[in-house]
Design a protein around this nucleic acid. Sequence first.
DNA 1: AACCCGGCCAACCGCCCAACC
DNA 2: GGGTTGGGCGGTTGGCCGGGT
Length: 346
Amino acid sequence: MGRAPCCDKNNVKKGPWSPEEDAKLKEFIEKHGTGGNWIALPQKAGLRRCGKSCRLRWLNYLRPNIKHGEFTENEDRVICSMYASIGSRWSIIASQLPGRTDNDIKNYWNTKLKKKLLGSTAAPHPHRAPRQQQHHPPCLNLMLQHTSSPSLPQATYNSFFSGAGGVLHHDPIIPALALPQTPQDYMLSTGAGLGIPTNAPSSLLHAQQQQQFQHHLQQVVKEESGSMIVFGSDQQSCSSSDGGAHSQQPPQFGGHGHGKELSFDGYLFGYNNGGSGMEHDSRLLLHQLQDAHQQAHQQVPVEYNYEDIKQLLMSTTAAGSLHGGHEDGGMEGFGGGGSQGKVTMM
DNA sequence: AACCCGGCCAACCGCCCAACC
DNA sequence: GGGTTGGGCGGTTGGCCGGGT
């Protein structure tokens, strides 16, 4: 099938951007903005480029505050943790790392980080210490916590905010919500996010901070419920225990007036149609919730360390793709629920 | 000095989805 | 309601570069 190309490929320049083109694009966007239409932009800016190419060039290279160069250990940690949880959803991961682009992170992962994990032998851990006390190389430890919270599994909660914060707060494309502090700040400073490096200084893992953050966010979520996902009723709708398919059913979408609701495992998630792409976000998040839910039900508490991530990589490599879809016992618990049908890590 | 090879990264491609008409 | 369009995303490609032989 396919679709018509977004531009006349015969009349557009391809390949590396020249400094002149960069200058033109930058100047135009700084003066006029993108105008919300990338396809029309190159013509207006006097560029013989595809609109998508302009967008990419701007987002990945010309946009202000782009950070290039070495990734820090903290960034490594965040990438690994989130990869283990949500898979190769680079834009979400990038949203947790200000100044980094999804392309950057993708390249970094594919060329360095993955090899670092795959390539290094078990040398760092000749005999595995008890997991909790193990000293890992940076970024190699992910712990999903699960509490007996009656309102929401902790793992789910963490995943939710990790993903939600990323998508809603940092993505320049999606209107930002006024979250009080950035989730990645919390992730990095309190361990309250999805990835909680156990080798973080203990002061950064203060339980009270986590609670405060989560409570705070819960409040914000409630307050913002007119425009974003909310925790809802105690509706017991979709079961998660139907054998192998638990939590695999597609999100349940329903319509209620101007808003819509998503139900998942007894929780109801709703949002209003503000025309801001919230449905997309909501679906994304629901997938993350499903993943986290699955994790919480299968392995609680769940901890991934160096060997786990390595195994994940090796198994997916062996399968020739990350889109495995099979239920590999060794990899149970790794997230990536295949949002938009693209990523399946299970 | 020439060639080969692998790493790196910018850019492209194709698909999906939401918005729009 | 259905078709079209444009934005966004992840996967892949291709060219450059540096190190090794």
